[in-house]
Design a protein around this nucleic acid. Structure first.
Lengths: 63, 63
DNA sequence: ATTAAATGTCAAAAGTTTTGGACAATTTGA
DNA sequence: TCAAATTGTCCAAAACTTTTGACATTTAAT
């Protein structure tokens, strides 16, 4: 699973900490997901997508 | 988190077992997700959506 | 009414994600 | 160049998802 969180986040001038705050997740979690350490739960994927004003499939790429 | 797996699955004339097989998941997992016992991981959500020929956001409704 | 298929459910174990705290490394900009 | 901000990383514990196997209940069809 790939994602373009980092790109979208920078486009929005947002730090990992800020994105984490918006998602009510920890900064470490955002960092791990951004760096493909593991995949988020569906709920967190929704929160991230919403914070970045995108659909899930615009943020996360499966296959 | 809501989902319309059951409706889509029936529309496709698919049993839980068949959907599970397509997703390479267990029947119980599909059953639990259908009945809102817990939310899937993002990866499984993708597999379910693909098996039902939908986007994730057409299958799962967040808020 | 009987059967088979499909669905619902339980419990225990294994696997995965998320967290907090802490600190190192890198980037940014004054 | 220095300090501050940001990012990367480690650990261990908590929380959550998934699996297997088993059995009960419901549904559908004959």
């Amino acid at each position: 699973m790939k994602n373009i969180i980092k790109q979208l986040r920078k486009k929005s001038n947002m730090t990992q900490a800020k994105l984490a705050e918006l998602c009510k997740a920890s900064r470490q979690t955002i960092n791990c997901i951004e760096n493909d350490k593991y995949d988020p739960t569906l709920e967190l994927a929704f929160k991230i997508a919403r914070a970045l004003e995108k659909n899930i499939e615009e943020v996360f790429i499966y296959e």
